[in-house]
Amino acid sequence: MKHSFILALCTAVALLPACRNHSAPVATEFKQTEANMTAAAVASDELPLSESEADQAPALPISQKIIKNAVLRFSTSDFEACKKRIADTVKKYGGYIASEKQENTSMQWRNEVAIKVPAATFEQCVESLTGGASGVDEKSITSTDVTEEYVDLDARMKARLAVEQRYVQILQQAKNVKEILEVEAQLKGIREEIESAKGRLQYMDHHVAYSNISLEYYQTFANSDPQSPGFLQRSWLSFKDGWNGLLSFALGILSAWPLIVGIVFIFIFIKRGIGRWKSRKTPANVNL
């Protein structure tokens, strides 16, 4: 009997630490989870390799992420033909026109076009667009390497995904409403960061795959344009400029008719006043 009591007492003492560890709340576990999982995920996306495996494992190539942009500005002698040529060129190289803004005046026609073209055909498209221009005013090409930012953001997103999975496991072990709400609050913040990182990665992928071309072309009809056509057409443009100037002058006079009418009334009023004043000062004729 005495031996049975001692055996039961020893068993209870041995099980006491295990019971205490089992009764620890889930909230204590998830407070340390994010830091541990993030550090582990950033350090390596997989389990660490042994030295022999690390020597034999080939290095994964990292493709460069380069965003290309071009700014083009040139004049043309035939606006409509140039517009059609640009549309055909963009279509030929697999691109598309993202936006277009055209402004037409009596002196100049102008069009601003935002073009998206695959990075593989970017240089050929730029050369074709400027090839048929009358005179190129501006041509600049820039390249931005976002490889480092892309790799860093991708690693951080994978780390957050690993933390998210761990929190999902902790959520399944939650024992009460308080623990559930705390874990869900952490999950919400992590998932927002993941969505933000995904959006940024998609943005960079799209701009790497499709380069940007900001194109502006114009046709000037003023007589002073050094790129104007031949003598006969320049004579016609001069006549047109003179006619437009006359019309502008006539329209200016018409728009100022209230001022003109007011001046006429003031002139008549002053003239009559002067006439009356003179008639008063003139002595009346005396009949003899």
Rank of each mutant, 00 (worst) to 15 (best):
Q219S: 03
V264F: 15
G262H: 06
L215V: 04
K271A: 11
D45H: 14
P17Q: 03
Q102T: 10
L9K: 13
S238E: 11
E179C: 07
K188T: 02
H22G: 08
G252Y: 09
M107N: 08
R156V: 05
E100T: 01
R272P: 00
A43S: 13
S196R: 04
S128K: 10
T121D: 14
Q102P: 02
E184A: 15
R73D: 10
N21L: 01
R110W: 10
L161D: 07
A54N: 12
M157F: 06
K175H: 11
L181N: 13
E34S: 00
A98T: 08
F30P: 04
R276F: 01
G131W: 05
E164Q: 15
E100N: 02
L181E: 13
A155T: 02
L7V: 01
A35G: 00
V177C: 10
E148G: 05
D45W: 14
K278L: 06
T105K: 08
A222R: 10
A197P: 02
K83S: 09
S63D: 07
V151W: 05
F74S: 08
R280L: 04
K271R: 14
F74Y: 14
E53L: 12
D137T: 02
A12K: 04
F231Y: 12
N285F: 15
S75Q: 13
Q165T: 06
V13G: 07
T11W: 00
L237Q: 13
N104L: 09
K65W: 00
T38W: 03
T11V: 07
D88L: 03
A8V: 09
L15I: 04
S196F: 02
P283E: 10
K278G: 05
K278H: 07
T220P: 02
R272S: 03
E127C: 09
F122C: 01
L247V: 09
C10Q: 04
F249E: 14
P229A: 11
E149Y: 08
T121V: 10
V136I: 12
G262I: 06
V264M: 13
D205C: 07
I170T: 02
T33F: 05
H22V: 00
P283T: 09
A120R: 11
L259T: 00
Q165F: 09
R200N: 05
N36E: 13
I253C: 10
Y93T: 07
S140H: 13
V286K: 14
K101N: 15
D78W: 00
Q124M: 06
I266F: 06
Q169H: 09
